[in-house]
Amino acid sequence: MNPLLLDVPLQIETERLILRAPNQTGDGKIVNEAINDSFEELKAWLPFAQELPTVEETEINLRNAHINFLKRESFRYLIFHKSTHDFIGTTSYQGIDWNIPKCEIGYWINSKFSGYGYMTESVKELTNFGLNFIRFKRIEIRCESTNQRSRAIPEKLNFQLEGIFRNDDLSADGNKLTDTCIYSVISS
């Protein structure tokens, strides 16, 4: 099947959260505020967060993410709390290979919402949706070996640690070599 024919929803709900594609004008402002709020934490782990983006740059990034969603190249979701409507963070299917089909799940959270299980809930939903609806045969989560908070999510969700690739990547700031943990879950 051609992935363009997949009817992937623009919104997915969990018990506490709404995951919505970045398809609304003005999403850049709320995401940019979260990047600013969490800049020091994000800077340690994410190459995109080495410099504070402008609101305009964030808006452009999100509009490109929406285009990629429509083209079925990646699926980014903004995470909102159902009752408070607070913006929590983002999660996405990325690195999609439709020939297998497989993908990687990526995520980041606004630091003030860390520790409440929101990202684990989001990733759990994306994993279930990816395996059961999109029919991915393999879903990976990759993270730096020293990023214990990021590693906790696939471990809680029973992803298998397939290995740690030594000297696999550069740190977010590009100054040193890092090891990458590869977690996966496969369809049964």
Rank of each mutant, 00 (worst) to 15 (best):
E125K: 09
D7E: 15
T25E: 12
K82Q: 12
S150R: 05
V31A: 06
E104V: 15
S187M: 02
E104W: 10
R72Q: 11
L170P: 00
D86F: 09
V31F: 09
H81A: 08
Q50V: 01
W45P: 01
L10I: 05
G174M: 01
E15D: 15
L62N: 05
E140I: 10
W45A: 02
E140T: 10
L126R: 04
P9W: 02
L70G: 05
I186V: 14
N64S: 08
N167K: 11
F48R: 14
N158E: 07
K137M: 13
L131R: 12
V31I: 10
N132D: 03
F39D: 03
L52N: 14
K137V: 04
E104M: 13
A44Y: 03
A34V: 04
E125Q: 07
E13Q: 09
D27Q: 03
C143E: 01
L62S: 04
F87E: 01
V31H: 11
S150G: 05
A34M: 07
S122H: 04
Q160H: 06
D179I: 01
I100G: 11
K112I: 09
I134V: 14
W45N: 08
E56L: 10
S171M: 02
P154H: 02
E51M: 07
I186R: 12
P101Y: 02
D7P: 07
I35L: 03
Q50T: 04
T54W: 06
I100A: 15
S114M: 02
V123P: 00
N147D: 05
E104F: 11
T127R: 05
L161S: 03
E59H: 06
E33S: 11
E40H: 09
I67E: 07
N110C: 09
A152Y: 07
E40K: 10
D168I: 00
L6V: 04
R138T: 07
I141G: 14
K156M: 08
N110E: 00
I88V: 15
E144W: 03
E41A: 13
I30H: 13
I153E: 00
K137S: 12
I79M: 12
I96K: 05
I67H: 04
A152T: 03
H81K: 15
W98T: 13
A34I: 07
R63L: 13
E125S: 11
H66C: 12
G28S: 12
I88W: 09
Y118H: 15
N2L: 13
N110L: 08
D7C: 14
T14N: 02
S83N: 14
E144K: 06
L52H: 11
F159A: 14
N167E: 09
V123M: 11
T14R: 01
Y93F: 15
P3A: 14
F87S: 07
S92R: 02
K176W: 00
R151E: 04
G117I: 01
I164M: 05
S74H: 08
R151Q: 12
E41M: 02
T14C: 06
F165C: 14
P101M: 12
A21V: 10
G174Y: 00
R142D: 08
E51G: 08
M119P: 01
R149T: 03
P47D: 12
